Simulated scan of single mutants.
Amino acid sequence: MNFKNLANKTLIADNDIDWADLGAGIKRKVMAYDNDLMLVKVAFEKDSIGTIHNHPHLQMSYVAKGSFEVSMGGDKKILNEGDVFFAPTMVFHGVVCLEAGLLIDVFNPHREDFVK
């Protein structure tokens, strides 16, 4: 998939974008972005793990489906459909999927590593 075609696109149909299989029960769809903002769908199978990591981007994640144990800095909390977590710049965070789920991630600025 050439994600560069999505840059600055304004009307996006979900069916026009393929999932990228990340392995270990996780797949990602970059839905839209420009230099300052990016929206990404991330689907998780039950028991899959979004490994603890950090990055210079601000991140907000909406739990669109399922249940996740979210680690943020030194804190952990179970979040369910409708809940949100915010990952400030360079704060270590990750998830364990407790029930098959979907996260909607928003990044500022966009994640260049997701579109290369």
Rank of each mutant, 00 (worst) to 15 (best):
M1N: 13
N2L: 06
F3H: 15
K4A: 12
K4P: 07
L6T: 13
L11T: 13
L11D: 14
I12T: 12
A13Q: 15
A13D: 14
D14R: 15
D16L: 02
I17D: 13
D18Y: 11
D18S: 12
D18P: 10
D18W: 10
W19I: 03
W19H: 03
A20F: 14
A20C: 14
D21I: 13
D21N: 14
L22Q: 14
A24R: 15
G25F: 06
G25C: 08
I26D: 09
V30A: 11
V30Q: 07
Y33F: 11
D34P: 05
D36G: 10
M38E: 09
L39H: 14
L39D: 04
V40Q: 02
V40S: 07
V40K: 03
K41Q: 11
V42R: 04
V42N: 04
A43Y: 04
E45R: 02
E45I: 02
K46Y: 02
K46C: 04
D47A: 05
S48N: 00
S48M: 05
I49W: 00
I49Y: 02
I49E: 06
G50L: 09
G50C: 06
G50F: 06
T51E: 11
H53I: 10
H53Y: 08
N54I: 14
N54T: 14
H55I: 08
P56A: 05
H57I: 06
H57G: 06
Q59A: 07
Q59E: 12
M60C: 06
S61R: 07
S61F: 02
S61M: 06
Y62G: 01
V63L: 01
K65S: 05
G66R: 01
S67R: 00
S67Y: 00
F68C: 00
F68Y: 05
E69A: 05
V70C: 07
D75S: 12
D75W: 02
K76W: 09
K76T: 15
K76P: 08
K77T: 10
I78M: 04
L79Y: 01
V84R: 08
V84P: 07
F85E: 02
A87K: 07
P88G: 08
T89M: 10
T89A: 09
M90R: 11
F92L: 15
F92N: 15
G94V: 04
G94D: 02
V95C: 15
V96M: 09
V96F: 04
C97G: 04
L98R: 01
E99R: 05
I104N: 02
D105R: 02
N108A: 15
H110V: 08
H110M: 12
H110E: 10
F114S: 09
